[in-house]
Amino acid sequence: MSTNASPPSTRTGLPPAALERPTPDPARLVRLGGLAMAAGALAWAVGTVLTYDVDPAGEAYPVAYKVSSLLFQLGLVALVSVQLRTAATGTGRLARGFLHVEHALLGLAIAASLQWILAPGLSENAFFVALDLFWPLSMLGMAAIGIRIAIAGRWRGAARIWPAIAETWALVMFPAMALVSEEASAFVSAGHLLVGYTALGIILAVRPELTLAHG
């Protein structure tokens, strides 16, 4: 009679770390992305209002304003990450590829912002002038994403509609900067950031289930 009381083997061929790795909560990730977006947009809106009377032709923006715009860009990175994770623009290769392209555009725009903060004396350098163009290009890309999300219909309710509202920032601001004064356009920008991206971030943080597939 055997005295071996060892339980039967439960080996699965997987390393222990793989067996114990928890599955990320998709709703929590959406909430975090929404909070990052709301915080970044709010920071830039406040920074824009506080510097409404700065003349960029003859005055330098304070570092706090520059950092607030960087926080907004980082919020956009978080937002696009949420859109990728939830396949907001669709599940096709092209739809997801466009979001990857937007991440790349934002990365280049962030590089330009870091130069503006850390080495403003290089702003007239031809390379950095060209790099700075990725900031408006990235915002135009966000506008296209907002329209695509509304068409795809994978997000529901307010989460489906609000990206198209929030991501028209560039489409609103470019004409505003041409038609009204610098001071007025600053308030237009801040108002749009609050109504658009800040509200969108709050929607994602409060109602993440609107972005997730029906279970």
Results as ranks from 00 to 15, higher is better:
Ser181Glu: 04
Thr91Pro: 03
Glu182Gly: 09
Gln115Asp: 00
Arg154Phe: 04
Val188Ser: 09
Ile165Phe: 03
Val49Asn: 03
Pro7His: 01
Val30Phe: 00
Ala43Glu: 03
Leu212Arg: 04
His100Gly: 10
Tyr52Glu: 02
Arg21Tyr: 00
Ala60Pro: 03
Asp25Lys: 08
Trp155Lys: 11
Ala178Thr: 12
Leu194Ala: 11
Pro120Leu: 00
Phe187Asn: 07
Thr48Cys: 11
Ala78His: 07
Leu74Gly: 06
Leu94Lys: 10
Glu183Ser: 11
His100Lys: 06
Ala87Pro: 08
Pro8Thr: 01
Pro15Val: 12
Ala18Asp: 12
Ala64Thr: 09
Glu167Lys: 03
Ala199Met: 10
Val206Tyr: 05
Ala64Cys: 10
Phe98Gly: 14
Ile110Glu: 02
Thr89Glu: 07
Leu137Cys: 00
Ala41Pro: 06
Val30Leu: 02
Leu171Lys: 04
Pro16Ala: 10
Ala111Tyr: 01
Ala164Asn: 07
Ser6Thr: 12
Gly196Tyr: 01
Ser2Gln: 08
Arg96Cys: 07
Ala130Arg: 14
Ile110Leu: 09
Arg156Cys: 05
Trp135Glu: 08
Ala159Trp: 06
Pro15Gly: 02
Phe187His: 12
Ser69Ala: 13
Ala186Cys: 11
Phe128Lys: 11
Thr10Cys: 01
Phe128Ala: 10
Pro56Cys: 07
Thr91His: 11
Gly157Ile: 00
Leu171Ile: 14
Glu20Met: 15
Leu131Gly: 03
Gly90Tyr: 09
His214Ser: 09
Gly34Arg: 05
Pro16Ser: 08
Gly92Lys: 11
Glu209Ile: 12
Pro15Leu: 07
Arg11Met: 03
Ala178Ser: 13
Ala213Ile: 12
Gly153Ser: 02
Leu70Pro: 02
Arg21Asp: 09
Ser113Gln: 05
Val30Glu: 00
Met177Asn: 13
Thr91Asp: 13
Thr91Leu: 12
Gly191Leu: 06
Gly141Ser: 13
Ile203Ser: 01
Met177His: 05
